[in-house]
Write a protein that binds this DNA or RNA. Structure first.
Length: 272
DNA sequence: CCTAAGTCCTGAGTGC
DNA sequence: TGCACTCAGGACTTAG
């Protein structure tokens, strides 16, 4: 569930769940294995009795606001939340927030690249402090910001888009898609792209992320968001996962390579 | 055997 | 030579 549209889809689904029943946490259960880092000390006693007042998101981070305390949550590569009403558990369940009405919100994450941590409201969590503006925050994530971030940089533009310190929320799927939509070669050095073209890229980021949110995100293989439905944006992908298939604009076969350790797909003819 | 929606760390390289 | 910064590659983990 990892990039911005998938996290936003999850956020909305969880908000809907919380709106139709109790939002008070009466217990927290968690395993001993931990995720990317160990679970915070006394997580259960710190959260017990608190009400989840709202859920927000910055980049790929989901923030659970709990009356003075913030539950900071990253879904890693395979993290999901689901609602459990009968107390049943599955392998790779790691955290359960037990609500006053008996429902359990269960965090499930086979690869354990996700993260659950606590910090006081107001005090920004150290992990959030280094993040750039959220990719969907039009007021903060401007062309001016992108142009400044690209200046002097020799990294491929697609690698720069993946840097959460520059812009928060873009992952491998949407970095590929945004470069295609903007007609920019993903290998091109960030510092060697004209501002007018970066403006197009900025616009493409908004467009592709907004479309993906509307579609409920992208679902890879048979992955399912157990809270709601699967996403449908995989049917709208133009390049990601389509290497050697025909470009949807010019019909030439799509190229692929590795940039920043991630598969990169683009059209040699349509993207310069 | 290979690959995968992410992030963090290390070490090499670059420029001042 | 030193320092700060940049960038590439690997590690982490499980499932298919």
């Amino acid at each position: 569930m990892p990039e911005l549209p998938e996290v936003e889809t999850m956020r909305r689904a969880l908000a809907a769940v919380l709106a139709q029943g109790s939002r008070q946490i009466v217990a927290v259960r968690h395993g001993t294995v931990g995720l990317r880092r160990p679970f915070p000390r006394r997580m259960s006693s710190q959260l017990r009795g608190r009400t989840i007042t709202s859920l927000s998101r910055h980049g790929k981070y989901l923030l659970w606001h709990c009356e003075g305390l913030q539950l900071v949550n990253h879904l890693g590569m395979t993290g999901t939340w689901r609602v459990v009403t009968d107390g049943s558990t599955r392998i790779h369940d790691h955290v359960a927030l037990v609500l006053a009405d008996g429902r359990h919100l269960v965090y499930h994450d086979p690869r354990r690249f996700g993260l659950v941590d606590l910090c006081p409201t107001g005090n920004g969590h150290p992990l959030l402090a280094g993040l750039g503006p959220d990719a969907m925050d039009q007021a903060a994530c401007t062309t001016t910001h992108l142009v400044a971030a690209c200046r002097g940089r020799r990294v491929p533009i697609k690698v720069l888009l993946l840097d959460q310190r520059v812009i928060a929320g873009i992952g491998n799927i949407y970095a590929n898609e945004a470069c295609f939509m903007a007609g920019i070669d993903p290998r091109r050095a960030a510092g060697r792209i004209a501002p007018a073209r970066l403006a197009r890229l900025r616009e493409a980021i908004t467009t592709v992320l907004a479309a993906a949110i509307t579609a409920g995100g992208t679902t890879i293989s048979d992955y399912r968001n157990a809270l709601g439905d699967q996403g449908w944006f995989q049917h709208d992908l133009q390049v990601y996962g389509r290497q050697a298939e025909p470009c949807r604009i010019c019909a030439r076969p799509l190229d692929h390579t590795t940039l920043g350790g991630r598969v990169t797909v683009w059209c040699r003819h349509c993207q310069r």
